[in-house]
Simulated assay, not measured.
Amino acid sequence: MEITFRSLEQVAFDELFNAFHSAFADYEISISKEELRLMLVRRGFDASLSVGAFDGDRLVSFILNGTGTFQGLPTAYDTGTGTAKSYRGQGLVTRLFNESLPALREAGIKQYLLEVLQNNDKAISLYKRLGFEVTRSFHYYRQSQSQLTLPPKALLEGFSLQETSLPADDIAESFADFHPSWQNTIEAFHRNPETFYCVTCCHEGIPVGYGISEFETGDISWLSVDKRHRRIGIGTALLKSLLEKITTEQAKVVNTASDAESLNAFLEVCGFPLGGKQYEMIQNFK
């Protein structure tokens, strides 16, 4: 067996999907071709800056890198890293990261970002050895819509909901309690805007809250309310509107900051159980 490493620029999407499916076949992960396609677009996947390990013509291990801007810096994001089961334990992921770095630096990337489950001690140790540091902790939630228990609140007089286009970064983030994770930035939504529904709550014509969901994945991607107008039913009204637009029975909320106590408590009141926790990790390029 001779393993070679090269860019994924010439790899067809079906081949990527097959490799992804093979790498995660023994995990509790099930993703369709369309879901993978949506995920890659939303996360800014750049095949020319992504690397695969090949056994002959077969893609057996990969790093799918996205690129964009994060907190003001040109950033690469590890959209997905995986290795087929029979090829694990050979150090392929370390080789892939090392193979990725020269091209990322040449492209002007200043930092490398990823997320990892907090109970995946093996992966966390590997990423720390590669120079990544934990920067934040996230929660994620998942629940069937039939099991949700939204409070029976109605909007007060003078408040209204309306479907709108995606907001500008600075406006939406002014209402948020934390900077969103990579896939939940306004920049990420604008990569494929027709796949998202945006609802705005206004008070006498002035925006006081935003909600954004992704139709086909059931992802509640954004929920923020102006602090001056909280606890009067706006969050509930926004969430209800978002749930009505998704096409899946199961709804999910991925990567709320662990210290965003108000939002996390609201989700739990609405019937979303805590599904798990992730770390955000970043390697700064010198």
Rank of each mutant, 00 (worst) to 15 (best):
N18F: 04
P273F: 07
A84C: 11
I282Y: 02
E214P: 00
P151N: 03
Y140N: 09
E34K: 04
T94L: 09
N192P: 06
N255K: 09
F5E: 00
V269P: 07
L239S: 05
L238P: 03
T69L: 03
W222G: 00
D219E: 12
P193G: 01
E34S: 04
F196Y: 14
Q143S: 11
L239M: 11
Y127I: 03
E187A: 14
N264E: 10
G44F: 13
G80M: 13
A172M: 12
Q183F: 11
P152V: 09
H139R: 08
L64K: 00
H190W: 08
G108Y: 15
L242Y: 00
Y197Q: 06
Q250K: 04
C198L: 15
R136W: 06
L223C: 10
D121H: 14
L148C: 09
S181I: 10
T94F: 08
N192R: 15
Q118P: 07
N184A: 08
G235R: 02
G275P: 13
N65T: 02
S146T: 09
H229D: 10
E28S: 07
K240N: 15
Q71G: 03
T4Q: 03
S61N: 01
G211A: 02
H139E: 10
D55R: 09
L150Y: 05
I206M: 15
L155V: 12
I109F: 06
Q147L: 14
D57T: 13
Y210M: 12
F196L: 04
V199K: 00
E2Q: 10
G275F: 10
V11E: 10
